[in-house]
Simulated scan of single mutants.
Amino acid sequence: MPKENPLKILLVDDEPLARERLRALLADIAMQLPSEVVGEAGNGVQALAFLREHPVDVVLVDIRMPGMDGIELVGHLGACEKPPAVIFTTAYDNYAVQAFDLNAVDYLLKPVRTQRLLVALQKARGAQPPDAEMLAGIGRAVRGGGRTHLSCHERGRLLLVPVAEVLYFKADLKYVTARTVEREFLLDEALTHLEGEFADRFIRLHRAVLVAKNALAGFEKAADDDADAYGWALLRGVTDKLPVSRRQWGAAKAALVS
């Protein structure tokens, strides 16, 4: 690769010493593969904020990090217009790294070795994006649950919606609206997929509605002539009322009690 066009690299690791070591290794192989570290981040949220303004060629990312881990970060990168190549770094030699290897995404075991980093960078440009469903499954195993954030494209920008702030999901045609106390976000997600991924946090009220259990404030029966719902769910923090079907009425009320 010509020296006048070095690889632009983002380092993502919650340990400053790990990022410092990668910088040193990149300097060691600069004659063989010129690169430039254009930024650093301590977790996936910080990395995505950086990438909104600074395109890069390669992301070197740790797997286990607080806030948003590396697996979830890569899932969001797939929604970018020009996603960078990804090389995982990890101290855990287990099923996850084996799965990544099978899916043509490279990984480096810590402590990272100079020659191994060089080989990974040389093949990074040709790596295929990881399979989203596989990432989701591995991510749940690593962190013990679903994603911490959801992606939303708005006016050409990638926004992150913290799952912990979502009061409910409501399906409308092929899109799903995520409602927080502050506003609504339009997601390109399937309601059934969200229900399965976040079954510990959300319950179904209606064929088109999932609600966060901790957002429920109460219920009221619908009028006899109301064709839209058997009853209505009242929420904390907003005035919205959500329809509850006859089939879900008992389970929804039980969730409030528990």
Score class of each variant (00 low, 15 high):
V244E: 10
L7I: 06
D93H: 14
L187H: 08
A190K: 15
R143P: 06
P84D: 08
S35Q: 06
R19D: 01
A215H: 03
S35T: 05
R140Y: 00
D172L: 00
G237K: 11
E154G: 06
D28T: 14
P83A: 06
N214G: 10
Q122C: 03
L135E: 08
I9L: 09
L121V: 05
L7H: 04
E182D: 12
C80K: 12
D101L: 14
L117C: 04
L33N: 10
E4Q: 14
W249L: 06
G75K: 03
P16S: 09
V238R: 07
L102K: 15
V86T: 12
S151K: 05
Y230C: 07
L11D: 00
K174R: 14
L108V: 01
V209A: 02
D240G: 02
Q32G: 02
L26C: 05
K110I: 02
L51M: 15
H149Y: 14
L7Y: 10
P6M: 05
S151E: 04
R155P: 03
W249F: 10
G156A: 09
A49G: 08
E36R: 09
R204L: 05
P2F: 11
G156Y: 02
A136C: 12
F202L: 06
V112M: 10
R140P: 01
K82S: 13
I71K: 08
E4G: 14
L194T: 04
Q32A: 07
T114K: 15
F169D: 00
D131T: 08
E53W: 10
K241H: 07
G145K: 10
K221E: 12
F100L: 08
N103Y: 05
M31I: 12
L109E: 02
A223P: 03
I138A: 07
L10P: 04
L191N: 01
L108F: 07
A127L: 04
R157F: 10
P6N: 12
A222Y: 09
